[in-house]
Design a protein around this nucleic acid. Structure first.
Lengths: 287, 287
DNA sequence: GTTCCGCATGAATCGATAG
DNA sequence: ACTATCGATTCATGCGGAA
């Protein structure tokens, strides 16, 4: 049953006749997802409770029950995702009785049994992590960004997220030696000219699976689950304009704002009226 | 049965009458460990051969058999570790059929069944990771440093690895380019640096659980799997002078060299004669 | 004695080809 | 169908020799 409470935003795009569409559902993720058609979503990106410390507001799912609570939802996400789509899950295990809890790694194993492929694990290195001091551990400054896929042939637009090369390249490419040419030549053979030009003009490199993202300094009122640069990066990487992005735990609406900015259609689900209203407010400010 | 092949080094210490002792065993880890007494080791730190990765030098354990191969060894490590001791395991899953293999997370679950506590997971961010380009993933620039303990009351000397505050700001003043600022993670959080003297007088802060440092590619033929600064950091953090450090997969001897430098006793086990000899050579050079 | 610059190499992965 | 081998691809670091 799809939630009756749905809010739709439209943004006219400069690049085409079509408008980009953003929908927010107020309701339970599992129930709302059951009303969605299969194979319609290009990217799911979300930060469910526990990764973002909102557990108390969500009814407090205990760590020991986390996997059984989440698995029905991932099953629906697998259904609504296109075969070429990707699921990015931002999550981190809490400390329970001085140990890292195992619900995240158990979830990975169970999701593979559901049919998900565990393609990769990205690291989000948080520069300004939560301050504090404990006797048996340091501050936690990273979170997991688990990448799951439905098939091995998923869409990935790597050139959209390239980064500037390191300082060494400037020195290196300043004066190309003939040895460089010789080396490239020996490797490629016929494609001599192409290969040299490829390196001469090179200013960008592909990133790695450790994300160094700018930190959010703006809003002090509410803490966004993740900085906008995080969904922006993955939306650029795994979707093109006109594709559809889903966040089943929308929170303050960061994923939808990022989607609108990048001319992607988007769908968000939020169970709490308070966050639902906040998301609407934030989107109206940013549209 | 303890291996008959044992080499012992001694280093006279300035701080006490006692000499620091380093032993290397040539033999199979499991067999050699069985000859060790219980509760004698303060820190185990090691980087076992990753599944199928170094099959030219080691046996080449298949990913699907990795857990069953490793579990008997972790059982012995649990026995020889002191109740106040710590086990640091450097490991990373390899890609099999376009997916991250699950042997690491399965190992964590099985080790907990053996009685280990999974206290923490540190991230080693490798600044110079292996190059390459693929259609479905980026370069892998991080590895896991899993912390296991025997009890909740383990020794931890946090103040030994403190780092200067404002290191990040200092880097900025060094006139680094905007590009490097964006690419580089905060230096605060790494806790690594060779010149400690210049930190004197600065306000100090505790590091985080993300360690950023480069691999050492310089050594020809036999390069160490991890840079010396890695065992140095953990030895400082989890042991005091006179304690005993164990590395059951010694390789080129980095752990023992670090231990000798820091006046900790140490034990190394290496199955390959070639690496055994290399470790002895390296220790003699550094003693 | 510094600084600069060339260069080899590193826990890699995919897809195609061969047995 | 399933495994084994091989070539192509790519980037940052520290070393050593030269200026």
């Amino acid at each position: 049953m799809i939630s009756k409470n749905k809010k739709v935003f439209k943004k006219h795009n400069l690049f085409s006749q079509k408008a980009t569409r953003a929908e927010i559902y107020l309701g339970n993720s599992l129930e709302v997802l059951k009303g969605f058609k299969s194979d319609g979503i290009d990217l799911v990106i979300t930060s469910p409770p526990y990764a973002d410390q909102r557990n108390s507001t969500y009814g407090g799912i205990k760590p020991d029950h986390y996997v059984e609570w989440f698995l029905p939802i991932t099953k629906e996400l697998l259904r609504v995702l296109k075969p070429t789509g990707t699921f990015i899950l931002n999550i981190k295990e809490k400390v329970v009785n001085s140990e890292r809890h195992t619900y995240v790694i158990e979830l990975i194993l169970k999701m593979r049994e559901q049919g998900w492929l565990w393609t990769e694990e990205y690291i989000w290195h948080k520069k300004n992590c939560y301050p504090g001091k404990w006797t048996n551990r340091f501050r936690d400054s990273w979170e997991r960004l688990l990448q799951f896929n439905k098939t091995k042939k998923f869409n990935m637009y790597q050139e959209e997220v390239m980064i500037p090369m390191g300082e060494w390249a400037k020195v290196r490419l300043k004066n190309l030696s003939e040895i460089d040419m010789r080396r490239d030549n020996s490797k490629v053979g016929s494609g001599f000219g192409k290969n040299v030009s490829k390196w001469v003009g090179r200013e960008m490199a592909y990133p790695t699976n450790v994300l160094a993202l700018a930190t959010e300094t703006g809003n002090k009122n509410h803490s966004a689950v993740f900085p906008k640069s995080l969904p922006v990066w993955f939306i650029k990487l795994f979707t093109k304009r006109g594709d559809t992005v889903l966040d089943p735990f929308l929170g303050s609406g960061t994923t939808l704002i990022a989607s609108l900015e990048l001319d992607r259609n988007s769908v968000g689900i939020e169970i709490l009226k308070e966050y639902y209203n906040l998301a609407i407010e934030n989107i109206n400010k940013n549209i």
